[in-house]
Amino acid sequence: MANVTQKSPIKFIVAAVIIVATIAYLSFTGGRDNKSYYVTIGELQGMGNKAYTRHLRVAGNVAPGSIHRVGTNATFDLLEQGRKLSVVYQGSEPPPDTFKDDAQALAVGTYSRDGVFHATQLQAKCASKYAPAPASATPATTAAATLPATK
């Protein structure tokens, strides 16, 4: 800097580096153990008593043929790596159109001690795959990506 009396930018640069490093560190460590957006069925069943007291979002694939719709409500099973979770959905809105057999879905609600998950909200989750429907009329069920259970 031309002017000696002027404030040195070093302090500012050090502060900036500290802030950026902190954010990077938090993102990185958060990346390894953040399971906050949803839990898998395996994690739900491994949570013990905590599973019954918290409002949760559970992810899984809708078991084919298990959906029974009653008005805007529905009951169905979620599957994930051989584990099954029965879900009773009671909400004011019907499930979205993408909510169908084999689709990835998130159920938001509470887990009761009888092993049934009571959902008040359903969210479909889309695969990151885009392909036209095959001519040989196989439903696009295989396109539903398996859940990243290891994350």
């Binding site: 958060g30 957006y37 992810a59 989750k125 695969a127 990151s128 990506a145």
Partner: peptide, 24 residues
């Protein structure tokens, strides 16, 4: 890539079940 999200995983350069059909 880091976190579980509602948003789909990367379409380009993502996992085995991702990508765009060449026709699209």
């Amino acid at each position: 890539r880091w976190w579980r999200t509602q948003h789909p995983a990367p379409v380009f350069g993502g996992g085995p079940d991702s990508g765009v059909d060449p026709s699209m």
